[in-house]
Design a protein around this nucleic acid. Sequence first.
DNA 1: GCAAAAGTGTTCTCGGTACACCCATGC
DNA 2: GCATGGGTGTACCGAGAACACTTTTGC
Lengths: 235, 235
Amino acid sequence: MKNFDSYFKSAFTVDNVIFGFDEGDLKILLIKRKENPYAGYWALPGYFVQPDEDLDTAAIRVLKQLAGIENVYLEQVKTFGTVDRHPFGRVITVAYFSLVKIADFSPFPDNDVAEEVRWFSLSNIDNLAFDHEKMIKECFMRLKKQVSAQPFGFELLPQKFTLTELQHLYEAILEKPLDKRNFRKKILSTNLLIDTTETQEGVAHRPAKLYQFDIVKYNKLLRDGFRFEFQGAKK
Amino acid sequence: MKNFDSYFKSAFTVDNVIFGFDEGDLKILLIKRKENPYAGYWALPGYFVQPDEDLDTAAIRVLKQLAGIENVYLEQVKTFGTVDRHPFGRVITVAYFSLVKIADFSPFPDNDVAEEVRWFSLSNIDNLAFDHEKMIKECFMRLKKQVSAQPFGFELLPQKFTLTELQHLYEAILEKPLDKRNFRKKILSTNLLIDTTETQEGVAHRPAKLYQFDIVKYNKLLRDGFRFEFQGAKK
DNA sequence: GCAAAAGTGTTCTCGGTACACCCATGC
DNA sequence: GCATGGGTGTACCGAGAACACTTTTGC
């Protein structure tokens, strides 16, 4: 029988691209690496997959260990496998992405790989380890697509939010301004927002109503093959 | 410094899900394996990635060696990495997919892995090696999505085709009937079809016009962020 | 009373959908 | 002349887009 040993010499890792939203700005969670290669560099929270561990499981574990974040939905995006992307040998990496509410987590490094964990504005990201910038770009494109196809984005906001906050989020992801009336009409027409009868407090203008996302109804719609289209005009 | 050796013991492969279309039926290219594991089973044309080879390159090479098919556009779809999916050790695989014109190729095995190569109707696929059925399912979903978002599918037809052939293709992918007049109106309104002034010959009914796909115009549109939506009614 | 953001309706246009009959060919 | 699939037009409806003014609060 043929000998396959020479193939069993590579390793694989998972990298997580975690999006958050704050102060009208899309952010990404990065860690400062303590370990070589790229010690001292900022990087996506990612690490080797254990020999007896599934990919999805590894992504979840690594995110918890490196950044202290758990209970988020991770979705596989793409696999990167250029020959020389890792100085220690042949390493291919599977990129995962997620959307989280920044306020729900206080990320902290719980592992000897990460020295620091921080949210970075998408526009401030620079000089990352490995090919992580390329990975972020791919995931951002995926996010854009998803947000136009499903009323996503609720994952990125606090539980109760105003319609204007939601609109700003969409504008940040789609990178274009949206019409206020049309946006509201469209979002409300899905009937996926619950009007908590509460309003903002302590703002120097008319206080906005607070809404909640109706997850139960949303999941029901998804099962029925639900479609949602969001483009917005004003080219 | 930490020792990473234990991570460098896995292998990875690429598997190609190649769709073709013939006699009103969506087909997939499979090989009959000569080699263990799963010798004698039908499987997707896939193999180990060489240590110094990029993923995309490997997918192209493997497709040529195992099935004699080259010059097709391969797109990465998803990575499968369940712990025990391969009996020889930890092997994760990256699935690629493509659409081809069946008539353009005469697939033949040019490698000691494949004993036979054949097109199988999507509905006739059964008892494949590894987790290949799952991979096909994922790729078919991707195909469905793409076909609704872009006027795809031309890759699956001969260079000159009739509108009815194109409609049958869409119906096979979307798994639902479409209205003839609306289909034609919509497809022609993209201006992506060139009317070769030729017609069918030797058919026992009014011969249909033959069209060609305008690739140049299509690529131009794609660059400008072109959108195309195809759902079809008749729920 | 003024600044600042919240909230609200109507008109127009365009694309999607439903639907039925005549046409060209081979035999 | 008949069977077979090719080819064509119209009316209706709904969703997207454009667009400006009043309301509520804090200071």
